[in-house]
Simulated assay, not measured.
Amino acid sequence: MASEAHGAEEGGLVFHPMDQFIIKPLFGGDTISWYTPTNATLWMALAVVAVIAMMVIGTRSRAIVPSRSQSIGELAYGFVYKMVEDVAGKDAVKFFPYIMTLFMFIVFANFLGLIPMSFTPTSHFAVTVVLAMLVFLTVTIVGFVKNGAAFLGLFWVSSAPLALRPILAIIEVISYFVRPVSHSIRLAGNVMAGHAVIKVFAGFAAIAVVSPVSVVAITAMYGLEVLVSFIQAYVFTILTCVYLKDALHPSH
């Protein structure tokens, strides 16, 4: 309270929108090592538990008249399966379990992050970069294993004029290695920005004059963030399918 009052006297912010993204050890202390359980670890684990609860426990009855959890699980299964089949082709269906796992983890991590006082692991580049690098390495390895040196045809635009092909090849190589960067920043940046804006409006809610406007703005932003949470998981997943299609069918 003293620090907040001091900040107010100096004209600084009483609230800090970015504080919600600070990673903290679960059991106190200031030192964080690779093995230290943190709030990020907790909420990633809760996302995994939520996925298992819905997709395994919620669908185990396999009733003809499905329950709510079974209906949601079946809709999610059919949605991702059709996405993989339509975007990457039938020969990509063998990678469906991996893509389905990615989609469900990101969706639940995003949605759980909308609970008050929770933590959103997908707002951190440390999490999204790992997810993006796993996709990048998987796609690259699959491309070379399935096609051998022919995978390099992905970078050679044979339909372009011969004089332009070397230049286009350099551009294609650069864009290929930039993929994990854009893949990870898109997800983390959108999630972080939305949560920060909600926190800013929540800070103004304490001021009586602007409180009604802030409440309306928070409600609107919260509804938008629910939509963004799903859209960003969808975008991450469909880009994964596009990259997988390039690995399976590399020729231009």
Rank of each mutant, 00 (worst) to 15 (best):
G7H: 11
A8F: 07
G11R: 07
G11L: 09
L13V: 03
V14H: 14
F15W: 09
F21W: 05
K24R: 15
P25D: 01
L26W: 00
L26Q: 04
F27Y: 15
G28R: 07
S33Q: 12
W34A: 11
T36A: 04
N39Q: 12
T41K: 05
T41F: 13
A45K: 10
L46A: 08
A47S: 13
A53S: 10
M55D: 03
I57H: 05
G58F: 00
S61N: 11
A63T: 13
A63D: 11
S71T: 14
I72Y: 03
G73T: 00
L75V: 05
L75I: 03
K82S: 09
E85G: 02
D86M: 07
A88E: 02
A88R: 01
G89C: 06
D91V: 08
D91Y: 01
A92L: 08
A92Y: 02
V93D: 00
K94T: 13
F95G: 06
F95R: 06
F96C: 00
P97A: 02
I99L: 11
I106L: 09
V107G: 00
F108P: 15
N110V: 03
F111T: 01
F111H: 01
G113A: 02
L114C: 00
I115G: 00
T120L: 02
P121D: 05
T122N: 04
S123V: 04
F125W: 12
F125E: 04
V127H: 04
V127F: 13
M133E: 13
F136Q: 10
T138A: 13
V139Y: 00
T140E: 09
V142S: 02
V145T: 14
K146S: 06
N147K: 15
N147M: 05
G148R: 09
F151E: 10
L152M: 11
L152V: 11
L152Q: 08
F155Q: 03
V157N: 09
L162N: 02
L162V: 06
A163Y: 07
A163P: 09
R165C: 01
I167H: 07
L168Y: 04
I170L: 13
I171Q: 14
V173Q: 10
V178C: 14
H183R: 13
H183D: 15
I185V: 15
R186D: 05
G189Y: 10
V191W: 01
H195K: 07
A196K: 12
I198W: 01
A206I: 05
S211D: 06
P212D: 08
V213I: 14
V213M: 15
S214F: 00
T219D: 04
T219W: 05
A220C: 11
A220L: 15
L224A: 12
V228A: 08
I231Y: 15
Q232L: 14
A233M: 08
Y234H: 11
Y234S: 10
F236N: 10
T237Q: 06
Y243T: 00
Y243F: 06
Y243L: 06
L244K: 00
K245T: 03
L248Q: 01
H252W: 07
